[in-house]
């Protein structure tokens, strides 16, 4: 996952991640990419379009 520099670490993505794979720190966002099934829900709910699939 590409996290854009304007991410505000609100954690909405983590809340909808069905596999609980997103760790939100104060100024970083860490995805457990190994277990990600690319459902894209995190990208869909982001209030500021800060997430982009890493293709």
């Amino acid at each position: 996952m590409i996290v854009k520099e304007w991410c505000m670490y609100c954690g909405e993505c983590a809340g909808v991640c069905p596999r609980n794979l997103i760790e939100v720190r104060e100024l970083t966002l860490k995805f457990n990419e190994d277990q990600c099934k690319e459902c894209s829900l995190c990208i869909q709910v982001c209030p500021v379009k800060a997430l982009e699939e890493d293709k």
Binding site: M8, C10, G11, E12, G15, V16, V45, P47, V48
Partner: peptide, 8 residues
């Protein structure tokens, strides 16, 4: 100020 976030 700008605030964003999710509300369940």
């Amino acid at each position: 100020e700008l605030n964003i976030g999710g509300d369940p």
